[in-house]
Design a protein around this nucleic acid. Structure first.
Lengths: 201, 201
DNA sequence: CCTACCGATCGGTAGG
DNA sequence: CCTACCGATCGGTAGG
């Protein structure tokens, strides 16, 4: 529980701190159940101060989602850089995505359901960020289909895949017997027609 | 917008009406963003009256979840009654589940994420209802694995399957080009090793 | 970014 | 199940 004072707006990462704290609280408690006071307290501010950085609680959610998604996208792109084999690339995408979801601080993809609190304009901007996030996925799926390793690469396949992965946040327990690596492998094995070499080694 | 008066507690389905309205609102707006006044208004009561039927807003959520899950389970059991072939049975389970999720009034499985608002005891009771719901699924998966139509029937497979299905509520649009039947078929095709005859007919 | 504050809303209750 | 209501909380703002 940090509790420091600082000069007006001269610390450029207080905004980022607010976003990180907000994202975490929104994921854990939900948007409506999180108060702006919770967020302020998490970064050692007074109740009114978040509104110096963001116009409204909704703005905070919107920014947390978009910047979180774009950060996740950077992580994806860095991870698949130079990975030519589409099967291996998919594996890396899945593992990286699960890392963001289950191990990260800032599990933004999980906030989709909270966008119902936003207006159409904000929802549109978030949808655009999601589209950006999905590009490398669709590309890998298309290549896999072209190589005959996937029966179809139609959009529902990508969405069903995201469903498998994202829903795991509801049941996955880090202290259980299933590692994130194994979970990633299980998801990939379900997707690909012929079970990859690493299924059960 | 119903608006009737009635005698104290003598209409036995007012409780059920409250539950149905609550479930719908909780799914659409989330637990925290739904007020007990919203729920009261949806069934034509005054703001204080839901508390004649339920001790608290949390009780309402708990009851809506458990009774909704058990109703969904009845629907599942009725649908697979007499279906001996496990592949066909899985198909029926998937289609029925998607019906509950995407076409029903009372899409209780979607409320999992809202259980964070409840205490451990209530969460335990809901987890038990979920376990009951999953029994016929695990049974079908086991039979499919035994018949060699599924690489594995370990628990993650069932959970990944539920993920595919449940997450669809975030993106599926009834007015789009994809019918619920097609979505069900796509999910089953992803799961089973050899694409079933009906993939693209 | 803090202090001090407002107006609105909300879950819940007493008493009938 | 309604009326009338309370105490607490919350998003947001003025003014510095």
């Amino acid at each position: 529980m940090p509790r420091r004072k600082s000069e007006p707006g001269l610390e450029p990462n207080r905004r980022a701190e607010l976003l990180r704290a907000a994202a975490k609280l929104f994921v854990d408690k939900g948007f409506a159940a999180t108060t702006t006071r919770d967020i302020a307290e998490a970064v050692g501010m007074r109740s009114g101060s978040p509104f110096y950085h963001f116009r409204s609680k909704q703005e905070l959610l919107k920014a947390a989602m978009i910047e979180g998604l774009d950060a996740g996208r950077e992580r994806l792109l860095a991870a698949i850089d130079g990975v030519a084999d589409p099967e291996q690339r998919l594996r890396v995408l899945v593992r990286t995505h699960l890392g963001t979801l289950l191990e990260g601080d800032c599990r933004s993809p999980l906030l989709v359901s909270e966008t119902r609190a936003l207006d159409d304009k904000a929802r549109g901007e978030i949808a655009a960020a999601f589209d950006r996030y999905q590009v490398p996925w669709q590309q890998a799926l298309d290549e896999l289909a072209a190589a005959g390793k996937l029966a179809s690469a139609a959009p529902p396949v990508r969405l069903l895949l995201f469903g498998m992965l994202n829903w795991s946040s509801h049941w996955y327990r880090p202290d259980g017997t299933l590692s994130v690596d194994e979970l990633a492998e299980a998801a990939v094995a379900l997707l690909l027609r012929q079970p990859p070499q690493g299924t059960k080694r």
